[in-house]
Amino acid sequence: MENLSSFWGPVTSTHEWCELNYVHSSYIAEFFNTISNVPCILLALIGLVNSLKYRFEKRFSVLHLSNMILGIGSMIYHATLQRLQQQGDETPMVWEMLLYIYILYSPDWHYRSTMPTFLFLYGAAFAVAHSQVRFNLGFKVHYGLLCLLCIPRMYKYYIHTEDRAAKRLAKLYVATLVTATICWLADRLFCKDISLWHFNPQGHALWHVLMGFNSYFANTFLMFCRAQQRGWNPKVKHFLGMFPYVNIQKPKAQ
């Protein structure tokens, strides 16, 4: 039962997830959905350190930072279940996908300034529109379409990569994405049934954890592919024997 008072007041967000509110703390509406963002933030921090250490292009540092911002925004949203904080979660989701589109497609884009300019203006326009209109289903459709735009390019990178360790990263990316999506759908579609169970598997919290790893695998794979394009002799290594990262050797001229 919901036995603690709400510090943040009535719920104003358009969504509540399959977790009872304010069970563990009067300051955290959805406890597990909040703390499950921590792995995403930590993994993004590992990626950021690696990107800076090997002096990858700034786009990858920005990408890891965007993952961290998204995790923090999601924590605040699930802790408060307020409309403004929901925007702070959903708008960075769109910005992050625009950044993925740039990283995936820019190497073959002949007009260097047009793509980042268009994506920046698009992201700014979306942020303004999203602050005024509750898209709800429209947001999910829009976000899904942005994700679909990335798939053909990711597949192209995969089939042109011969390194087995790098291919394994791509496979882990797909596996975590599929598993996370199943958890998300189960939490949304079967919440009434799950609420009757003695144990809630916390499908949305699992989605957060899995998507944190999903982003980490995707980012590492893209860093490997970019290093190959630049002739940096990339190798997939492992931090603490668990977390893959890309080791590179730049020519002295670079």
Rank of each mutant, 00 (worst) to 15 (best):
G71T: 07
D163T: 10
F221Y: 14
V49K: 07
D89Q: 00
L222K: 04
A127W: 03
C40E: 00
L45I: 09
E57N: 13
L52K: 04
T80C: 01
K156Q: 12
N50A: 08
N21E: 07
R168L: 11
A218Q: 09
L169W: 01
S36Y: 00
R230C: 11
S51V: 13
D193Q: 15
P234Y: 10
G144T: 02
F243M: 11
F126W: 03
M242A: 13
S26R: 04
T176K: 03
V133H: 05
M211R: 06
A186Q: 00
H204R: 02
L137A: 05
L189V: 01
S36P: 10
H198I: 08
F118A: 11
Q228C: 14
G47L: 00
I103E: 04
P116H: 12
S51W: 08
Y158M: 05
M154S: 02
L169R: 06
L52T: 12
R134G: 03
M154I: 10
N214A: 09
L146W: 08
P10Q: 07
M154P: 06
P244I: 14
T161G: 10
I41G: 06
C40R: 06
L48W: 13
L210A: 09
T179S: 07
F120K: 06
E16N: 05
H160T: 12
F32I: 02
G144L: 01
Y77A: 04
R230F: 05
N33K: 05
E57P: 10
F135E: 06
R168Y: 09
V141R: 07
G71D: 10
L52S: 14
L222Q: 09
L43T: 04
R153M: 13
S74V: 04
V236M: 09
W109L: 12
H160I: 12
L210F: 02
L149H: 08
K167V: 11
S66A: 05
N67A: 14
A166M: 08
G71S: 06
W8P: 07
R112E: 15
L98R: 13
F213A: 12
Y173R: 08
I76V: 10
Y173C: 14
W17F: 01
V128N: 01
A170V: 11
H130P: 02
H24C: 14
P234R: 14
T91R: 00
W184H: 03
C225D: 06
A129W: 13
N247R: 15
N33F: 03
